[in-house]
Amino acid sequence: MTDITLKIREIATRLLQSDQVDVFVGWEKGPQEYQTRPFFVRRVEDVEKLVFNEYSIHNLTNYLLKYRDSTDRVGLVVKGCDSRGIVRLLQDNQFKRNRLYIVGVCCPGIKDPLKIAKNQSGLACPPNNEEIADKCTRCLVPNPIIYDELLGESQEPHNSGERFSEIKTIENMDPNQRYQFFEDTLTQCIRCYACRQVCVACNCRTCIFDEMKPQWVGRENSTTDNMMYHLVKAMHMAGRCIECGECERVCPVNIPLMLINSKLVKDMDHFFGSYEAGMEYVEGQKPPLSVYNPDDPDDFI
């Protein structure tokens, strides 16, 4: 990874010096090694702080939303899963390709700094796995699918076991059992909206949950309002979730959000497929639920 770090610095220096980008988005080391965090470089002097290490887990494509209304040209580093986020933003017309310089990194699998932070915090909780992050164990796309420059050796997906096996378990529950499962899971939610904030597919200018006129979803921390929040969010993800797993990673109360998203990924592929969101960028192409097709299946309605 040192190699990759050096190459990223080299590229960033080149892009800034040649005035190809206004800002370069990568990672820097925090006070603790595991607190590697997003870093924004505007001056060549700061390039030396850029790193790519085993904790570079954040999907930086979300930060492009901070620049969508500016004219800044942005260089950024993406791993395989993150790169699908770029397709998401391009398809959603949130960003123009020509304002981006994408440095792709073939991802060897990353550790989750949050898990390590929790383990080291001393707060009473069962110990977390400090090895490869949960989201990487479901990895399908370690190698970026859209980039201007590619770093690192091509990697095999890090997923293990059958895809959607957890979903199948839940599909096989009887309806009451399944309802109970989600009720138990979603009552934990503290409605902090971290899952929405880190989501690159959540790029609406005014989120439906912030809409006050009318207010669609109540702010109460109750089973009803919590479920409403998660159901509405999930439905908005259908055909759009790029499976970066950030929502689940940042949830402060460990809600298995990717279970819900993966079910929709599976159903989208089944009903409207074959389809995987953000797997390739073809100009003008839309996710299946963003266009109407007379042949769209409707027997599940």
Binding site: R37, P38, F39, F40, N62, Y63, K66, I190, R191, C192, Y193, A194, R196, Q197, V198, Q215, G218, R219, E220, V250, P252
Partner: peptide, 24 residues
């Protein structure tokens, strides 16, 4: 710059006391 304005810090903070008033 790195902040994504998720509310996690405020909700986990023992001293953050801001509230909203709403109706059902």
């Amino acid at each position: 710059e790195p902040c994504m304005n998720c509310g996690t810090c405020t909700y986990m903070c023992p001293s953050c006391h801001c509230f909203d008033i709403q109706v059902k």
